[in-house]
């Protein structure tokens, strides 16, 4: 009874209620994109010269401390596109999509549709899967049908003085030191922006015979969201 009286008596702090429950906001999360941004793409002849290697990196500038928490979105598919007849339209694709700790690869396979929208080519006979490697453990790789697969954190293989590069490309005095940046920094002062940082990598090695055999191909990588 005593409590009740007091409760009825004063309303001063009843404002606290608005905090907990008001949808006033938890600010919206960062607008997405980070987990579909391609930072780099490589294609080169493998150790076994009959094979070619494709590398796609996403999510750049991950510090060592943040690497363990970095992950692939299961709504984002990374697709290597291969044009074998010089018309810049993909004749073959290799698709990579994660599910529950594993990266699944489909292809090389002729896509059922080319261009901006894709479905996952689950009927492809070529492909395989690999457990996504975790930070702090050895790289897990897998092979199937002559192909090899890897997915997980790696050192960012890219190197450049990105900061100076950007300042040179942007007209005017960008860093506010009173003069326009007209030259790169000399050796010793120039620095590799990506040194010491990691990326999330997808690496796939494939027999050349599965992607045209010989001659020249055109290739590019895409990220696509469900």
């Amino acid at each position: 009874m005593k409590n009740l009286k007091r409760v009825l008596g004063i309303g001063v702090v009843a404002v606290a209620s608005c905090f907990v429950i008001a949808a006033d906001h938890i600010d919206a999360p960062e607008v997405s994109g980070g987990n579909s941004d391609i930072t780099d793409f490589y294609a080169f002849q493998a150790e076994n010269e009959d094979n070619l290697v494709f590398v796609a990196n996403i999510q750049g500038l991950i510090s060592p401390a943040n690497t363990a928490a970095a992950s692939f979105s299961e709504n984002v598919m990374v697709e290597f596109n291969i044009d074998t007849n010089q018309d810049n339209v993909e004749d073959l694709v290799i698709q990579a999509i994660p599910r529950d700790g594993k990266m699944y690869f489909f292809g090389p396979v002729a896509p059922s549709q080319t261009g901006l929208n894709s479905i996952i080519e689950t009927t492809s006979t070529a492909g395989g899967s690999v457990e996504i490697s975790s930070y702090g453990s050895a790289a897990i790789t897998a092979s199937n049908g002559g192909m090899s697969f890897f997915a997980g954190p790696r050192d960012d293989p890219f190197f450049m003085d990105f900061a100076r590069f950007t300042q040179i490309l942007t007209p005017g005095d960008d860093d506010g030191d009173g003069e326009e940046e007209t030259a790169f920094l000399p050796e010793g002062s120039a620095s590799d922006t990506f040194a010491g940082t990691n990326v999330m990598s997808i690496v796939v090695e494939v027999p050349k015979s599965m992607i045209g055999g010989s001659g020249k191909i055109n290739t590019w990588v895409e990220s696509k969201r469900k």
Partner: peptide
């Protein structure tokens, strides 16, 4: 799956 980013 709809395209968001690409790179050559």
């Amino acid at each position: 799956y709809a395209q968001e980013d690409q790179m050559g």
